[in-house]
Amino acid sequence: MPSLKDLKNRIASVKSTRKITSAMKMVAGSKLRRAQDAAIAARPYAERMDRMLRSLAKNLIIGEGTPRLLAGTGEDKTVLLLVITSDRGLCGAFNVSIVRETRKLIRLHESEGRAVKLFCVGRKGRDLLRREHADKIIHAVEDVGRKRLSFADADQITATLTGLFDSGAFDTCYLVSNRFKSALAQIATVKQLVPWPIEKDEEAAAIPAAQAVYEFEPEEEAILQSLLPRALAVALYDALLDSAAGEQGARMTAMDNATRNAGDMINRLTLNYNRSRQAYITKELIEIISGAEAI
C-alpha cells in the first residue's frame, strides 16, 4: 500500500506528463496543417509532370537509346528498397508499419533469389532495420527537411539514387513509404521507381490521335533523359511530403490517446488518494476514541 505522499507525487508526475502530451498533440496538429498545405501546393507540378511523361511515353518505343531509368538494366538481380520513415519517435505505429512492410519485402525478394539493398531516409527506419539487416543498408540519410522540407532535399536524394544506379548498385528500386490518408490513417505503400513504370492505360489510348501528336525539341529521348530524374525527384518529394504529413497525423493521434490515458490515470489515482486519506483519518479517530474509552 503506497503512502499518501507517494500517491500525491505520482499524481503530480502524471499531471505533468499529461501537460507534455497535450502540448505535443497541439504542436503536431499545427505542423500537420502546414504539412498538408505543402503537400497540396506540390500537387500541380506532379500532375503536370505526369501528364508530360505520359504523352512522351505514349509514342515511345523502348529500344537502344531509351534511357536506362526507363528501360531498366535488363537484369533483375538486385533490388533497392528506399525506405522513408521519420526522424523522431512518439508517433504510434507510423514507423513500425513501414519497417514491417520492408521486412516482408526483403523476405519476398530473397525467396525469389534477388539480393536486397536498403536505402534509409529517416533515423527511425535505419535504427529499427539495423538490428536484423545492418549488412543490407548501403546508404542512410537523416534530418531530411528538419526545418522545412524543400525540393532541394528530394533532389539530393535523387542524385544519390541515380548515382548508385549508374554505378550498377541495383537493377530495380522500390519506394516504401507512408501515404497520408487522413490524420488517423497512414497506409504503408510500395511504389516502383526504377525502372519507371509507364501505365499503358486504356484511357490514354482512347484519346484521339490528332490530339496526342506533340512535336519534340530536342527529340523525345533527349527530353526523357533529362525529364526522368526530375520525375523521380518529384515522386520522392511527393512521398516525403506525404510521409511528413502522415508523421504529424500519427503523432497527433498517439498523443491524443496518451493525453486521454493520462487523464484516466489521474482520476484513478485521485480516487485512491482520497480513499487512503479517509482510511487514515478514520484510523486516527478510532485510535483516539478507543484511547479515550480506555481511561
Binding site: 505543402a38 501546393a41 500541380p44 507540378y45 506532379a46 524543400s150 525540393f151 528530394a154 518529384v234 518529394y237
Partner: peptide
C-alpha cells in the same frame, strides 16, 4: 499560361 515549381503553382 502556367508556371509551376515543385513547391507551388
Amino acid at each position: 499560361f502556367e508556371l509551376v515549381t515543385p513547391e507551388k503553382l
